[in-house]
């Protein structure tokens, strides 16, 4: 085991010397992606606690599931449970490595499946501080990268990288991402608006490992620095490889998800 650990440690400085900051940034992002490959499918429940600058709170309950798609972006489905007036509303997304994602919204009162313009990705998700693009599948191709420096975050050695969204409709000019050097998972992201001002900070907390491989943060805290609003997203009941397939992510399936 020890020798295996030494090998990448020896190679690392070499690759650092050889690579430009762009190559190094992409290399780190690719490794994050590589380590989070092969999970096939997962599902979990989500709770969002929205808080405005006056401290007023509002709760959202949702169920989420994702399907890994080879050679393209993942498919995901989010079903709303609370607030009660939107119970049964469901959002189906097919993300793509390049170009716009495909999205359909199911409105249970009308039993209507509506194809929606997925470019509205910079908008807030359910009135929260998370934008649709923050929650969508993080494909490597959606950003260009730049390695900044090795750093420490709460005594954890991290890589600090900067990534620029490729999509001109993104709400961000760039993001700064702190990535755990050992586990290759994001610990913190700063989002900069189109005017290059700091807009939000996302902190990943309570990481747990599933199937001895896949790390998932059970809590994600998003602070908006410009409005004083925040959202705490809590993930529970994570389950991997639950036997979901394409049919569970079809337009037709929206009509029976509840």
């Amino acid at each position: 085991m020890k020798s295996l650990l030494i090998l990448p440690a020896l190679l690392l400085p070499l690759s650092l010397l050889a690579a430009t900051p762009e190559e190094r940034g992409l290399e780190i992002a690719a490794e994050v992606d590589r380590r989070d490959t092969g999970w096939h499918d997962w599902q979990a429940t989500m709770t969002m606690l929205l808080r405005n600058k006056h401290g007023e709170e509002s709760l959202r309950h949702m169920r989420s599931r994702s399907l890994e798609v080879e050679d393209d972006g993942d498919k995901s489905l989010i079903v709303f449970d609370r607030p009660r007036d939107v119970k049964g509303t469901a959002l189906l997304s097919y993300s793509h490595k390049t170009g716009s994602d495909d999205q359909w919204l199911y409105l249970p009162a009308l039993k209507r499946v509506k194809r929606i313009a997925s470019r509205n990705k910079s908008g807030p998700f359910m009135g929260s501080e998370f934008a649709y693009e923050d929650l969508s599948s993080q494909e490597i191709e959606k950003y260009t990268y730049q390695y900044i420096q090795d750093d420490q975050l709460d005594d954890t050695p991290v890589f600090l990288i900067e990534r620029d969204p490729v999509d001109p409709n993104s709400g961000y000019s760039y993001q700064r991402v702190w990535i755990d050097q050992q586990r290759y998972i994001p610990l913190k992201i700063e989002f900069y608006d189109r005017k290059q001002s700091l807009l939000k900070t996302l902190e990943f907390r309570d990481y747990r490992q599933y199937l001895n491989q896949y790390w998932r943060a059970n809590r994600m805290f998003m602070q908006n620095h410009q409005t004083g609003k925040s959202t705490l997203l809590t993930w529970e009941k994570y389950a991997f490889r639950t036997g979901l397939d394409e049919q569970d992510f079809s337009k037709n399936s929206l009509k029976r998800v509840k």
């Binding site: 194809r115 929606i116 313009a117 470019r119």
Partner: peptide, 9 residues
């Protein structure tokens, strides 16, 4: 029939 082209439906 619906065509979803960016911000246009």
């Amino acid at each position: 029939l619906q065509a979803t082209k960016g911000d246009w439906l």
